[in-house]
Write a protein that binds this DNA or RNA. Structure first.
Lengths: 190, 190
DNA sequence: AATCAACTTGAATGTTCATTCAATATTTGT
DNA sequence: ACAAATATTGAATGAACATTCAAGTTGATT
């Protein structure tokens, strides 16, 4: 019995990259064949169909994001400082010329009622992210405070992911985050 | 010379509805023909191509939104009260079973580098909305305060448009808005 | 009632789409 | 070395796609 000869992880990353950049509907399997160098048969044998490939690509991508997030949330003195750094890095991402929002957020908005399974899959991953913030905020907050703050952080992240498309938005975004998330103890500007 | 026999406004509304619900790429012209009852030739003569139809549909939709927004922002005692009502109505929208975020936000995230003209068109409309909030906030705020508050409101609106997909999110959203927009003077819950 | 530009019609076009499958190649167990 | 199991290949398939256009219809103007 012959084993897979292509690196599944590498294929998932190429596919995720295409789906992220172009969106689910605008990414043709043809594009995937080109980006991965694989032939139709191989892809369809390994992933079933386009939805299956998308689901695995998104899952793989999100898993990595969650690992990175967990690591970031513990590597600073306080959770607040960590969250500040995360938000600032999102703003900086949005200043790059090839800015493309966030794979999960884009997918959440693009998928329609015809793909309920994928929609639920995306929602579940976004909820996982929020519960990670919640878990860490619980260390220094009551349950209800932590929940409200976690939701507020998610709201601001979503906001940045959309607002980021406006060019020249860096300063406006920073001011808005300072105003909306005062409990993050932003260093004063002098 | 025979005049157009279909109601252009009605066609644009049907088209906008489809584009909004399904997204630009997942909406086929076939769908548009069915929803409007028109034949290919009529649509293509009137709007040039799919992009042209999309642009006009989005433009028409946004124009109506701007009119409604302007009206809402002036019909309450204070701007703050008006914004509160707008945000609450967005949350209530998100509780409906057929919730579908916001046409502009969805379009902003779906369109890719291959449709720069449409992208810019969407960005411009979103900026118009922000400047409307800014204009009204200027009445009771300094320029820099008004700008930060307008950006913060946009951030929260974008957030609600994404967060709204989570079921059972109404209370979490309300708490997060109270936390992130304290200057809106929310009535206390008792 | 004749004219003619503007509009509508809908079958036809050529392209691109996701997916299939018979043939071929490769790896592993015996 | 052979057999069995599994991967890869890539041309082929049929459906769906955006768009075109020649022929027909409409209604205001002459």
């Amino acid at each position: 019995m012959a084993r897979a000869q292509f690196d599944k992880e590498q294929v998932l990353e190429s596919a995720a990259n295409a789906f992220w950049r172009l969106g689910y509907n605008a990414t043709s399997m043809q594009t995937v064949f080109e980006k991965t160098g694989l032939k139709p048969g191989s892809i369809f044998l390994a992933f079933g169909n386009k939805e299956g490939l998308f689901k695995e690509a998104l899952g793989h991508n999100t898993e990595q994001s969650l690992i990175k997030l967990e690591s970031t949330l513990t590597q600073y003195e306080t959770v607040e400082e960590a969250i500040r750094h995360i938000l600032v890095s999102f703003i900086e991402e949005s200043c790059q010329s090839n800015y493309c929002s966030c794979f999960l957020v884009k997918s959440q908005l693009e998928l329609s009622d015809h793909q309920v399974e994928l929609q639920d899959y995306v929602s579940e991953r976004l909820r996982k992210i929020e519960s990670l913030y919640f878990k860490h905020l619980l260390k220094t907050n009551s349950e209800s405070e932590a929940q409200a703050k976690a939701s507020s952080v998610m709201l601001h992240i979503f906001g940045v992911r959309v607002y980021g498309y406006h060019s020249q938005s860096k300063n406006q975004l920073m001011d808005a985050l300072r105003l909306g998330l005062p409990w993050l103890a932003w260093p004063s500007v002098h």
